[in-house]
Nucleic acid binder design. Structure first.
Length: 193
DNA sequence: CTAAAGATTGGCT
DNA sequence: GCCAATCTTTAGC
């Protein structure tokens, strides 16, 4: 399977977040291949986005890898317990990223991957992978299929960013509609979440 | 230096 | 629905 190209990641963050749906995240750990298909993502839009770690131009040590060129990993620890994996987008110096929120795990992976912390635990992703290339030997993303058609992509506000004021309402969460491995169950009501 | 919160999760009422 | 776990980062003084 072909890796997603370097150019794929250097585009508009929302576009990358949508097109990552259906592609396969692969982690090579102790000679084993741990992988799953991406079914849920969120876009984080840099300085203008109060929900993003790089809001208002923040450039602290933690977020250094968000300033790398698109196609690198940004991994951070949350609540002292969990790690979250992000795909850095756009050009170097443009600190935007896509949070990977859920996977549909490939066999023989057994652990749950329906949440950003859970998928990192299942794929053995931690701070050591922060800043790594996503076209490297230990972690990469393969094209597993064509982009999903629009009607299969659900859209909602992002999860867990209530502190972000107006940005908390922005429709920047994308998910594969009806997939059983989403971090939250898809509601059938009109709000489309 | 000190304090508070967090892009979460799992367990319990 | 509510809350604690657990610790790094960040904001504030």
């Amino acid at each position: 399977m072909a890796l997603l190209s370097a150019a794929f990641y250097k585009r508009d963050t929302v576009q990358v977040a949508r097109e990552l749906l259906g592609q396969r995240l692969v982690r090579v750990w102790r000679g084993k291949r741990l992988s799953g298909v991406i079914v849920e993502t969120e876009a984080y839009l840099g300085a203008i986005d109060r929900a993003a770690h790089t809001w208002n131009g923040r450039a602290t040590e933690r977020v250094r890898s968000m300033y790398l060129a698109g196609g690198h990993a940004y991994v951070y620890q949350i609540y002292g317990l969990h790690f979250c994996l992000n795909v850095v987008t756009r050009q170097s110096g443009e600190p935007e990223a896509v949070l990977i929120r859920a996977l549909e795990a490939d066999s023989p992976l057994k652990a749950a991957t329906n949440g950003p912390g859970k998928l990192c635990s299942a794929l053995r992703i931690d701070k050591r992978l922060d800043g790594e290339s996503l076209r490297g030997p230990t972690i990469f993303i393969e094209r597993a299929r064509r982009s999903l058609p629009n009607e299969e992509i659900g859209i909602s506000p992002r999860i867990g960013v209530d502190y972000a004021g107006e940005a908390a309402e922005w429709p920047l969460r994308f998910f594969w509609r009806g997939n059983p491995c989403l971090s939250r169950r898809e509601r059938r009501s009109k709000d489309g979440a």
